[in-house]
């Protein structure tokens, strides 16, 4: 990550816009309380925390720069969504779909864009229209499976 992903401008810009970056070396004894607190088990271990320390999103595993940037933005959008900041969440999901429409995380952005709009407006037809578009655009995505209820 330090050698390939983090040096890329798109990644650095996404982090700087939304986050305070914190790196912890899991081999250091001083890190143990934090590793226990967050039940750390595997690296790369990426979390989005609110300022109080609550975890709002997480993932494991390496991502190349042009997958990491949209994944980070979706993570930040989800953090806003969980804090019921629906406009902020929706704007970031829309940005991901505009700038990274073929990224691995794009279907998730599509799914939760509908959720963020619905939670703000309670317009069920809007949600169903969004999810119908998700199904057409990403027919084999797990998020298409998840929108069937």
């Amino acid at each position: 990550m330090d050698a390939v992903t983090y040096p890329q401008n798109a990644v650095g810009e996404a982090i700087a816009a939304h986050c305070v970056p914190l790196q912890i070396d899991n081999s250091q004894a001083s890190a143990e309380p934090l590793l226990q607190k967050y039940r750390h088990i595997w690296t790369p271990d990426i979390r989005i925390l609110e300022a109080g320390g609550n975890e709002l999103y997480r993932w494991n595993g390496y991502l190349p720069p042009f997958e990491f940037a949209p994944q980070l933005l979706v993570a930040v959008a989800h953090a806003h969504l969980r804090l019921k900041q629906f406009d902020a969440a929706g704007e970031i999901y829309e940005d991901v779909l505009k700038r990274f429409p073929t990224s691995l995380v794009a279907p998730e952005a599509f799914y939760f864009l509908g959720v963020s709009r619905y939670r703000k407006t309670h317009e069920a037809n809007e949600l169903l229209r969004n999810w119908h578009e998700l199904e057409k655009t990403f027919p084999s995505s797990e998020w298409t499976v998840k929108q069937n209820f």
Binding site: Y6, C19, Q23, T43, P44, V76
Partner: peptide, 30 residues
């Protein structure tokens, strides 16, 4: 270039002050 912090307390304090989230990256040096 990313200006990484290495102190949890400093990162959460700065996030609170700046109105941002903390991006926590736990890594292994090996």
């Amino acid at each position: 270039m990313i200006d990484w912090l290495h102190s949890y307390d400093e990162a959460t304090a700065r996030a609170r002050n700046d109105g941002k989230f903390v991006l926590l990256d736990v890594f292994s040096p090996t």
